[in-house]
Design a protein around this nucleic acid. Structure first.
Ligand code: SF4
Ligand code: SF4
Lengths: 145, 145
DNA sequence: CGGTTTTAGGAGTATTTTGTCTTAAATTAA
DNA sequence: TTAATTTAAGACAAAATACTCCTAAAACCG
């Protein structure tokens, strides 16, 4: 079951690392992130660029540059992140991949899927990066327990 | 959010069609399925082959041949189907894509993800093809409401 | 038997996702 | 000012997924 793309996975891991390892307003370099989390530097750079464009992060070039949160991680919900990295209709997809779904004549899977999808959405919308990240040990973001 | 691969989507749609449109032990040809559901014939053939190998379907060649349920659709759970088409650890994946996860030192997403994943699994394991398919209008499997 | 219909199986192609590389621009510091 | 460091941006390559095509094998029908 692949809910998130690699981009989202990497993005989330980077953000959680940032929560746990940046004290205040310092910039953390993408190089450090990529090495500590074992993610391709260039690939991660692009992912974080998207988050910078989306005003979740700010970036700064040059020595001692890097990225930092633009808004406090207490106010960044998981749903904000995945909406940027997966697209706006992330929580609105059909289980069977059919286009143009409404409520007029739902297919037999609709009710079932709508509930699951809704629970996931709600959970993502109520969970902040800070609430996940304050316990984020580096090791747990590298290889899984 | 893409939970199922195309193979699973097509496989499920075909099975649901079968529930709604096969009276008893008749074979339904893959050609009919592919045309009615607008799925590539050759691609669908392979997907259904997997389900035949897994003993969910039986197939028969030659004129008036096709596929049919080997076990009654009341006893085929959604989880049985996706396990065949997505692999055995479909309900056991990590949200962050990290390998080798246990419970020793769960990462900050674990509890949250475990619950969502568990709900989905339970729902799939308790829902039979028959219970979804008996209301499956053809149109609802073609384009979505 | 020979021709037709149907699934089986495998090779090959196309598209999407993921990852790499190269160059440019901004910033710092010597 | 020059060199070093860092993000930005886009072209390119590799891998995974999705799809197509061709030939075989089984079953049927005349
Ligand atoms: S009604 Fe059916 S086709 Fe529409 S979103 Fe729900 S599952 Fe998908
Ligand atoms: S503990 Fe973390 S790494 Fe392990 S399965 Fe759960 S979310 Fe994934």
């Amino acid at each position: 079951m692949k809910v998130l793309s690699k981009s989202s996975e990497y993005g989330l891991r980077a953000l959680l690392y940032l929560v746990g390892n940046s004290s205040g307003q310092e910039y953390v370099s993408i190089r450090e992130l990529s090495e500590q989390l074992d993610i391709s530097f260039h690939f991660l750079t692009k992912i974080l660029q998207s988050l910078t464009h989306a005003e979740i992060l700010i970036s700064y070039r040059g020595p001692n540059g890097g990225i930092a949160f633009k808004i406090p991680p207490e106010k960044i919900m998981l749903s904000d992140v995945v909406r940027v990295l997966e697209g706006d209709d992330f929580f609105n997809t059909c289980l069977l991949g059919l286009p143009g779904c409404g409520a007029q004549a739902p297919c037999p899977m609709h009710q079932f899927w709508k509930e699951i999808r809704g629970a996931l959405k709600q959970e993502f919308e109520n969970t902040s990066l800070a609430s996940m990240g304050h316990t984020a040990l580096l090791s747990s973001l590298r290889l899984g327990p």
